[in-house]
């Protein structure tokens, strides 16, 4: 059976690539510390020596559109092109190409359907910065095959938070029952408090530092029940109008498990939003 060697939850700040590669006058004052934190975070994945990456993210109205919107979608393709014109334009992100772990995609789809998740699929998926950003931060050599999984945190009606946790639990079960001698890491990205296109956007901090503090506590302590008791689709409007992306963190808490304390926690308070980095080693340490 495959082994789940690392569970990683992260924000996906699209400006990291530009900030970390900028030089001279163009390099923002927060870049050096940001790079230091990201490189330390990267080491937590490197140490786990994964063979395959399951990547959980959310399409930002790139390929998935309101005429045909899935709630949860699994990519099943031998390759995935990545990043879009408007991401190159706004964030300076490069075009990328990923290899797909197609047999694991097929396994997750078949077994996921049988486990009660009516997963959509795509055989030709161009992925966006919700998945490319964590590759840039955590595995910049981009040498591992992936299974992309998209969630709808963007276009209401959305699944409720509990459903994200349930999907996370199911992803873990499926990875651990996949009959392959592979070391698998599950990496998911979302947001803490975030406002986009509203009056609280692009402030000196995230729009709701108190929510961020509590969110980091829920995640780092694995307090799924506490989080679920307070977070609803309605409540997520309060910390910022794009905060529903926090549900992808809740999905990753489901992968990590109830009460699972993160083995690595770091945050970085930036303009616009707080960065947050978490790693769990499900089997008690890195073998």
């Amino acid at each position: 059976m495959a082994e789940l060697v690392a569970v990683i939850a992260s924000t996906h700040h699209p400006f990291y690539y530009r900030a970390s590669t900028a030089t001279g006058e163009d390099r923002p004052p927060f870049a050096d510390e940001w790079v230091r934190k990201v490189e330390a975070f990267r080491e937590t994945l490197t140490k786990a020596r994964p063979d395959v990456l399951v990547m959980v993210g959310s399409d930002h109205f790139h390929q998935l559109w309101l005429d045909n919107m899935p709630q949860f979608l699994v990519g099943k393709a031998p390759f995935y092109d990545a990043n879009w014109y408007n991401e190159e334009r706004e964030f300076g992100l490069p075009r990328m190409l990923f290899t797909g772990q197609e047999d694991l995609s097929a396994y997750i789809l078949r077994e996921g359907l049988d486990a009660g998740f009516d997963l959509a699929f795509s055989n030709e998926l161009r992925i966006d910065h919700s998945i490319t950003c964590p590759i840039i931060t955590l595995r910049p050599q981009n040498d591992l095959p992936i299974v992309p999984i998209y969630t709808n945190i963007f276009a209401p009606p959305l699944p409720r938070p509990k459903r994200f946790v349930q999907l996370g639990r199911t992803i873990r079960e499926l990875v651990e029952s996949w009959p392959a001698d592979k070391r698998v890491a599950v990496i998911g990205t979302g947001h803490l408090s975030l406002e986009l296109g509203g009056p609280r956007q692009f402030g000196p901090h995230g729009p709701d530092p108190e929510f961020d503090r509590r969110a980091v506590e829920w995640i780092s302590s694995g307090d799924i029940e506490g989080c679920l008791s307070e977070v609803t689709l309605d409540s997520l409007h309060l910390p910022g109008n794009a905060t529903h992306g926090f549900m992808d963190f809740m999905l990753m808490m489901g992968v990590a498990g109830e009460g699972a304390k993160a083995d690595y926690v770091d945050t970085y308070d930036l303009f616009h939003t707080m960065e947050a980095y978490f790693t769990w080693y499900p089997n008690g340490g890195v073998a």
């Binding site: 930002h60 109205f61 408007n86 963007f154 986009l196 296109g197 509203g198 956007q201 109008n241 794009a242």
Partner: peptide, 17 residues
């Protein structure tokens, strides 16, 4: 557009562009 309920991410991205 915000008042009319257009998706704020779409509006923001295009107007930034």
């Amino acid at each position: 557009l915000f008042e009319l309920g257009a998706h704020p991410f779409l509006t923001l991205t295009l107007f930034i562009a």
